[in-house]
Design a protein around this nucleic acid. Sequence first.
DNA 1: CGTAGAGTATAGCCATGGCTATATCATAGT
DNA 2: ACTATGATATAGCCATGGCTATACTCTACG
Lengths: 147, 147
Amino acid sequence: MSNAPAHPPASLQARRFAHARECQARALLEDYVEMISDLISVSGEARVADIAERMGVAQPTATKAIGRLKREGLATSRPYRGIFLTDAGAELAERVRARHRTVVALLVAVGVPAEIAEIDGEGLEHHVSARTLAAFEKFLAAQNRPK
Amino acid sequence: MSNAPAHPPASLQARRFAHARECQARALLEDYVEMISDLISVSGEARVADIAERMGVAQPTATKAIGRLKREGLATSRPYRGIFLTDAGAELAERVRARHRTVVALLVAVGVPAEIAEIDGEGLEHHVSARTLAAFEKFLAAQNRPK
DNA sequence: CGTAGAGTATAGCCATGGCTATATCATAGT
DNA sequence: ACTATGATATAGCCATGGCTATACTCTACG
């Protein structure tokens, strides 16, 4: 039972880790953009206090994150006013939301309880690439039309 | 096509994000421990330079991370000597390695190309909880014994 | 057995993403 | 029209995880 690992070339392995780090860096932006989009479509507006509460962070943390969204051209806001998404932000939000739904649906499809799927999906989703997402969709489609 | 999101209670949503953040915090430790374990089992030793190269980071970054492993009781080392895992570290490495294999296998099982599964799996794995992992294993078992 | 070169550690920088404490603004209700 | 209150912004702290530059140590070879 040596369990000897495969050990791919170092350069390849390094690239995989670098990729995971990049996904992680994008994750925060994605989460905030999706949250803002949700709040707007449900409440008609996205306020810093609500964003902070739902993200589970203190209000200044949310303010700082929103500053980063603005720097990246994903959101806009005037002081003491609500937050809005740019076109780029709205588009990103839609993609993230769709991916989120697919990821959770796939987890459920392979037998993960819905509640757990929501929890794990929240972190998982940011590492699901376009090709993996496509595979998930294909799998779900095949399952919904069995035989 | 309103696409109105589900909007769970704020407290629940906040807990999900907090959980994802915790997973992320553990991810680095898990990756290093697994890497050290792999290097030891393949090369007989884990050297800082090799760890850094395979993780795709500069050598001082690896040294710093190893310092954190030591603080957390997962690894030991004497200056200018190789890195070793404590019992806790070795046990964690084994769990992480097993989870990694299962996650990649599941991705492949639902149709993700092996190469992509390896890349995405590297980031995904840290967010796969025990219950989700169990579901993955069950799904794989059912598939290997079809009908 | 001395030393050059490889490997490791240390110092110190930066950005990020948390936090608390506090200042500032907007507005609803007298 | 004031003002109290709640919402937002700002200041400044901390740990993390990157980096480069540099100092130190080990070791193998000549």
